[in-house]
Design a protein around this nucleic acid. Structure first.
Lengths: 242, 242
DNA sequence: GAAATAGTGTCTGTCAGACAGTATAGG
DNA sequence: CCTATACTGTCTGACAGACACTATTTC
């Protein structure tokens, strides 16, 4: 600040995505296998550099979402997660990454890998088990993403973003159980989720289930923040669903 | 990604700080009056560019904290707030800012302005009233900082960072009332804050107060996350303390 | 003693957690 | 009928909110 002709350093800006979805009642994250160095062949979060100097960060996140996951903007939650800028996180030089958290509804196909690299949904428990070494500091970013999702399920209506346009209460409960890693009582969950005003609204019809009474369908309500919040069982226990 | 010789664009990376403290039972933020263009003369959050290409973001935040506010690392909370990167937020070009939230304990002197610009503690209510136009998108950053602080008071022991090494329960209540903008019942607050295990621990002695029974002193406890959380009065009402 | 601030006891409505019981489907 | 799933009613312990009351200081 004291030199007259001092010029601040420039950095490369990347956008990385933590994209969550629910598959078979388990939380999955989209990972790609890197086709180029560095970390060629390793698993990594989808992402990339800004396409041009005037591209907005959110726009870049949406672009990557479309390019690497084939996901459009419909029924998709996207929020900023944080910035990761340790000097040595990328061997190519000073790369600072803006991480975004995205929630995708259940998708029938395993995602059409449109990009050069192969994209696949991976159970989060497996991605963080240490067996699969993630590129760069993506394990840290993924860990932060999980924690963010857990917190937001308490105070926001984010859980509905995991579901399709309509869903049953049991499906919504599946989301909470998978993300929090706990078991919830269906009866109490039913009462609780209905009592929060504006969280979910009836969608009229009902849906078949395999041998049993059909469940009523609901749509996401107008509320985005939940009062009172959903309460996560004490001690944020990470017990897997048996 | 398809061109062979494509080179990603570079950006300038800045670090901006939202530094909160409590003065006269009101939440204050540190603002500086800009000495140079752009926005010369306007109020802004303290901050600046990375000093060199290999500087870590947190290190840069600490450096700015020392340069512009004269604050060391002792008894100081610092956490990442978010990244602000709209293409037109800075007329000098593509500048992306990593915002950090800092909490400083009560300071006797109004901060020694060590930098070229004048630094002053400003009530947050005044800074956001619209009368004082803040530079760049700093009003947005400040708004996000206030919301973040409010949320973190619920689930973390962040409130103690506003106090000195020892404090009374009433002083802690002052923090909650100022940040949340509500009135709390002293008796219930007393019980509640004591019942949360590891939040605050007795510091042995007590402290004089103007005409009344001396209050016991406490120190921050080992707990950083609060279970159960402090409950903010319903509807996050923003009623100012009368 | 009065005044002021610190800290305690107790009641009450609300709600999370537990779980018995009812409803509606397919076999 | 039985089984499986969806949904309802009710009890109970814990706790937030309200507030009367006691304790310890200065004047």
């Amino acid at each position: 600040m004291s030199d007259d002709r001092w010029v601040p350093p420039t950095v490369l800006l990347a956008v990385d995505l933590v994209i969550f979805t629910l598959r078979e009642s388990r939380l999955h994250v989209l990972l790609i296998q890197r086709g180029i160095e560095p970390y060629q062949g390793a698993l990594a979060l989808p992402g990339g550099f800004l396409s041009h100097e005037r591209e907005d960060l959110v726009t870049a996140a949406h672009r990557e979402l479309a390019e690497e996951a084939g996901l459009g903007l419909d029924q998709l939650h996207l929020e900023q997660l944080g910035i990761y800028g340790l000097p040595d996180r990328d061997p190519r030089g000073r790369v600072v990454s803006a991480a975004y958290l995205a929630i995708a509804p259940r998708l029938p196909e395993p995602v059409a890998g449109t990009d050069a690299s192969q994209a696949c949904w991976t159970p989060v428990a497996q991605a963080l088990s240490g067996d699969a070494q993630l590129a760069f500091d993506h394990e840290q970013i993924l860990t932060d993403g999980v924690e963010r999702a857990r917190e937001k399920l308490e105070r926001s209506a984010l859980a509905t973003a995991f579901c399709g346009p309509t869903f049953t209460i049991v499906e919504l409960q599946d989301v909470y159980e998978a993300v929090w890693g706990v078991r919830l009582d269906p009866r109490n969950f039913y009462r609780k989720v209905q009592s929060v005003d504006g969280f979910i609204v009836p969608a009229g019809t009902s849906r078949k289930t395999e041998g049993g009474r059909p469940a009523r369908l609901f749509r996401p309500g107008p509320r985005t923040t939940l009062h009172p919040p959903m309460t996560r069982p004490h001690g944020q226990a990470d017990k897997e669903t048996a």
